[in-house]
Design a protein around this nucleic acid. Structure first.
Length: 304
RNA sequence: GGCAUUGUGGCCGAGUGGCUAGGCAGAGCUCUGCAAAAGCUUGUACAGCGGUUCGAAUCCGCUCGAUGCCU
């Protein structure tokens, strides 16, 4: 029986992941799974740098613009759906390509998350209210009472993490950390090869800056204007949109807003690099990779 | 040429004799369902030289550089 291989392409934003993924998928005659937490949303096309029509036509893509900003969607949902999709694809393919800039989403597929029961959304809503009414200290105390073990471990200044832990405690009646103790589902029925693209920091930053200019030329402002009334939705707390909303709101002039988009994208890229830096099994290639050599590096690591 | 104002870390900016603001940018980092999110860490810099003083970014002198006004 042949072994199944997932080729995961990672790297900072604007480095050229999409293009390389397509070349690899094309080479293997296979399809692409996107692991990008913003490209799911069909209402957001320009600002999330979704692959072009031609690119999408050249290789079948999955999880691109398949959701609406009005749906609530998270890594857990993605893990489930993407795994199911992979199972389907692997019925006919020995190799599938995954591209994505969202580290957590990529890891969810390659390494897996612990299983948590579904939590009713009202619980999070309440916790968010507690946060804004009573402050973070109140969340900290609550967590200390419900899950002292995790209270000891988490970054107590980070409201998102506190709220996630608390919603699980409250929604299940069991400490958040008790779910972490369960054996992880790290065993995947496929072998993963991770290909990282990188470049000198200045090059990455240059590419980011010019891509933002390109997005503006393509009509990002109009896209943002059309979405402005939904700016409170989580999906729109996204670089490229939130700054433009501030411009539309009169907080910034346009030039400032564009500068902020560039800056925030640079920071995002920096965080992506931090995330990737500690991973050990990444095959790194320069952004000016030689395709034949890159493919042969991949080939050497394919099992089957 | 004369007079005046001024010179603080990459940038902005407080600080008028001792206890070495702050912000931004940058860099580093954390990461189990909001992740393009959220959070954490991180700079002894006071134009140069000399002087006064126990002690100077803070006072004095000179030099250099800005800026403004005058002829």
């Amino acid at each position: 029986m042949t072994k199944k291989n997932l080729i995961s392409v990672v790297g900072p934003t604007a480095i050229g992941k999409t293009a390389l993924a397509i070349k690899i998928a094309d080479h293997y005659g296979t399809e692409i799974i996107s692991a990008d937490s913003r490209q799911f949303f069909k209402e957001m096309r320009i600002g999330t740098a979704v692959p072009s029509q031609e690119e999408l036509a050249s290789v079948p893509h999955h999880f691109i613009q398949n959701k609406s900003i009005f749906e609530s969607y998270s890594v857990g949902d993605f893990e489930k759906e993407a795994l199911a999709k992979l199972e389907l694809l692997f019925k006919h393919k020995d190799v599938v390509v995954m591209v994505g800039g969202s580290g957590l989403y990529v890891d969810a597929i390659t390494h897996g998350l612990d299983h948590f029961p579904k939590i009713p959304p009202e619980i999070r809503q309440n916790l968010n209210e507690t946060l804004s009414n009573k402050g973070i200290a109140s969340l900290q105390e609550q967590l200390k009472a419900l899950d002292p073990e995790y209270h000891n471990k988490v970054d107590l200044n980070n409201p998102h993490r506190l709220i996630r832990a608390l919603e699980v405690c409250l929604g299940t009646g069991a400490p958040f950390s008790s779910f972490l103790k369960q054996p992880k589902t790290t065993k995947r029925p496929f072998h993963t090869i991770t290909l990282g693209i990188s470049a000198a920091r200045e090059i990455i930053y240059d590419r980011i800056n010019s891509r933002v200019d390109l997005m503006m030329d393509e009509g990002l402002l109009q896209e943002a204007r059309a979405l402005e009334k939904h700016k409170d939705l989580n999906a729109l707390q996204t670089v490229g949109y939130k700054e433009l909303f501030q411009y539309l709101n009169g907080d910034f002039d346009l030039e400032t807003a564009i500068g902020e988009i560039k800056k925030n994208t640079r920071r995002f890229a920096k965080r992506q690099l931090t995330w990737l830096r500690k991973k050990e099994d990444i095959i790194w290639v320069d952004y000016k990779y030689d395709l034949a050599k890159t493919l042969s590096k991949v080939e050497q690591n394919i099992t089957g």
